[in-house]
Nucleic acid binder design. Structure first.
Lengths: 350, 350
DNA sequence: TCCGATATTTGTAACGTTATAAGTACTATG
DNA sequence: CATAGTACTTATAACGTTACAAATATCGGA
C-alpha cells in the first residue's frame, strides 16, 4: 500500500464540493459543468444528465456569492414590511404568499424591516445602494410615492401593494377598497343603521382615498350623514381608539354603524362601546375587513369582508418575477375583489 | 483638444465605484486601499484618512458578494420566524429588537419564514447548506431541539429564544415562565378566584414545562384543584378556544380564573364566556402575558404581566454577536424577569 | 557609511462562478 | 478527398475583494 500521494489528486475530503469537484470526478472541464448545470442545450444531453447526477450525489450546491459576483444578480427578492397592526397577521400572510410564489424558482425571499417612524425611502435606498436584491416589494403605497419614483428612475424592478397616482404606470397588486367601503355602508343600512362611521387610514396613503370615495358614494346615494372621526385613524393605537369610542358612545349622535378596515380598530371600538354600556348587535353593528376568519368565527354577527393577504403576496411575487423577466413588458396590475358573503339577515331573529 | 484616449485611462464614468476606483484616484495600490478601509494599524493614519475620505466622496460601498466570496463570511444573521399568533406583534417586536442589536455593526438581518406545519429543521438546514448566514436565531425551542443538535454538530453559531434540556450548554435568551405562572395563580387568588385554569402551549415546547411547573407549584402550595384544558392549547385557533370557553362556561365547575400566556387566548376566552352570559371582573378574572400595553390600557381590570419581546430580540442579537466573536467563550444565557406590576386591588371598588 | 530595525506599501494569487471566444471531432456534401 | 457544417467541449479571463509574502522607504546607531 503506497502512502505517496499522486501529484494531481485533489483532496476532496470534507471540503464543500464545487463545480471543480464535479469536473474532476467526471473528467470534464469546469466550464462544461457550469453550462451543463445551467441546462445549456449546446451540451450533450448525456453529459447534462451525468453532471447533474454527480452533483446530486456529492451534494453540490452552487455558491451564491460567486454567482452573484460573476453575474451581478443576487437572486433575492426583498419584501419590506412595516409593523402596522391594522390587520392581524398581515405580515405573516404576505410573507407566506410571496414565499409561495417564489417556491420552485431560485429566488430567495429576504424580509427587510421598516422601522416605525422611519422614512419609508430608507430601506429602499439601502437595498439599491448595497445591491441586496434584484427586486423589491413594498406596501402602504402613497399617491405620489417617493419609493416608486426612486425605483423608476433607476429602472430597479419592483411591485407595490397598493396603487399610486403618478401619470406613469407600474406593477402593483391592490384591493378594491372603494367597493369594500361602499358595500359596507349598504350592509349596515340593511341592518337598520343610519349613523355610519368609517375608520380611515392616515390620509397620505392611497387607500385612504379609495375607502373615502366608496364611503362617500354610498353616503350621498343614500342621503346619510357623513361621520369620519378626527384625530383617530386606522394606525392609531388600540387604547387611543378605545378611549375615543368610549367618549363618543355617550354622545347623542353616536354612530350606530362602523366600517373597520382592520380587526384591531374594531376590537378597540367594541370594547369602548361596551364600557359605555352599549352592545354590538343591539346598539350598533360593524363591518370588518379581515384576512383570517378569526373574528367572524368568534361571533357570527360580525359582518366580515375578507381581504386575502396571502393571495396578495402570491400575486405580488408572481408580478415581480414577470416584471424582472420582461423589463419592457406590460405592467402587471391586479385588483383583488372583496369577498362579500354576509350571513342571511334572518339569522338575527334567533 | 485631443479626442484620443490615453491607453491606461480607466473610464470611471457612471459605473459603480470599487476599491480600484479609489486606488486610481489616490495613486495607491488596491491592497492598500482594502487594508486602509479595514482600519489596519499597519497603514499610515494619514493614508487611512485620505482613503476613507475619497471613499466617502465617490460613494463607495463594498461589494458584499465579493467580500463574501473571498472571506466566506456572509455578514448576515438569520432570524427564523414562525407565524404563531400567541402574542400580538411577536414577530415585529423580535425583528425590531434584533435589528437594534445589529445596528452599527456590518451585519444584515435576514428574516426567514418558518412555514406553518413545516419541519422546524428545514429552514435551518437550508441556511447552513447554502451558507446564507453566519449566525441563526430561532424561537419556540424544544427540550431536545433538533435544530440545536444540528447546529452544535456543525459548530454553526446560533442563539435560541427559549431553553433546551440537553446536557450541554448553548447561548439563549428566555423568559421566566415558571415565575409568570406562579405569580399569576397568586394574583387570581388575591382576587378571590379558586378554580384557576392555565392555557399551556403544546407540550413539545420547553416553555410548556416551565409554565406547568410554576402553575403546579402554586396550585399545590395553595391547596387548589388543577385545571388544565384538554384539546386546547396556546396555539389553537381563536375560534376553537372560543368554542371551548363557551362550552365550559356553562359547567358547574367552570374556571373563575384564567392564566393566558398570550393575548389571543384571552380574547377568545373572554368572548366565549361573555357569549355564555359571564362577565370578566364579576364572574371571572384573568392574568394575561403580553408584550404591548394594548390590552391593559383597553381595560385596566385585566391583570397584565409583561414580556418584553423587543428586549428579547436585542439580547438575542447581542448574545449571538458575542458567540460569533468568541466561539470558545462562555455561553451567553439570559433570563428575562417578568414585569409584575398589578394595579392596587382597592381600585376595584369603583 | 553601512547595518538592521521599523514603518509602510505593494504584487500575486485566490475565493467559485460564468461569458466569450476558440477549439476539437465528427458528419454530410460535392 | 477536401470542405463546410454541426455538435459538442474547453481555455481564458473576469467579477471585487482580501490573505500572504515580499518589497521599499525611513531612521537610529555603530
Amino acid at each position: 500500500m503506497s502512502t505517496q500521494k499522486p501529484p494531481n489528486s485533489s483532496t476532496h475530503t470534507t471540503s464543500k464540493p464545487t463545480q471543480k469537484t464535479i469536473a474532476e470526478i467526471t473528467g470534464l472541464a469546469v466550464t462544461t459543468v457550469s453550462r451543463a448545470l445551467q441546462g445549456d442545450e449546446k451540451i450533450a444531453q448525456a453529459t447534462r444528465l451525468r453532471v447533474s447526477k454527480v452533483a446530486e450525489e456529492i451534494g453540490y450546491v452552487p455558491d451564491r456569492a460567486a454567482q452573484r459576483l460573476r453575474t451581478g444578480k443576487t437572486k433575492v427578492i426583498s419584501l419590506i414590511l412595516d409593523p402596522h397592526n391594522e390587520i392581524l397577521g398581515f405580515g405573516n400572510s404576505l410573507i407566506t404568499g410571496v414565499a409561495h410564489a417564489l417556491a420552485g424558482t431560485d429566488y430567495h425571499l429576504n424580509v427587510t424591516p421598516q422601522f416605525l417612524g422611519g422614512d419609508p425611502i430608507e430601506p429602499v435606498e439601502y437595498i439599491v445602494r448595497n445591491k441586496l436584491a434584484d427586486g423589491i416589494i413594498f406596501s402602504r403605497t402613497r399617491p405620489f410615492d417617493e419609493r416608486v419614483r426612486f425605483l423608476r428612475e433607476r429602472s430597479f424592478p419592483f411591485t407595490t401593494h397598493g396603487r399610486t397616482e403618478f401619470g406613469y404606470q407600474h406593477s402593483y397588486v391592490d384591493y378594491d377598497n372603494e367597493k369594500f367601503a361602499y358595500e359596507s355602508v349598504l350592509r349596515l343600512m340593511q341592518k337598520g343603521r343610519r349613523r355610519i362611521c368609517v375608520i380611515l387610514p392616515p390620509n397620505h396613503f392611497t387607500f385612504h382615498q379609495h375607502l373615502n370615495y366608496g364611503y362617500m358614494r354610498a353616503i350621498r346615494q343614500e342621503g346619510l350623514q357623513r361621520y369620519i372621526p378626527e384625530g383617530i385613524n386606522l394606525d392609531s393605537d388600540m387604547p387611543e381608539i378605545f378611549e375615543w369610542a368610549q367618549t363618543i358612545a355617550g354622545t347623542s349622535d353616536a354612530p350606530d354603524g362602523f366600517i373597520c378596515p382592520g380587526e384591531t380598530s374594531f376590537l378597540a371600538i367594541a370594547n369602548g362601546y361596551r364600557q359605555a354600556g352599549k352592545e354590538r348587535g343591539r346598539d350598533f353593528d360593524a363591518v370588518v375587513k379581515s384576512s383570517s376568519q378569526t373574528l367572524h368565527q368568534i361571533d357570527s354577527q360580525i359582518d366580515n369582508i375578507s381581504e386575502d393577504i396571502r393571495q396578495a403576496g402570491a400575486l405580488l411575487g408572481a408580478n415581480l418575477l414577470k416584471t424582472m423577466l420582461h423589463p419592457d413588458g406590460p405592467f402587471e396590475q391586479t385588483i383583488q375583489d372583496p369577498d362579500i358573503t354576509f350571513p342571511a339577515l334572518k339569522s338575527y331573529q334567533d
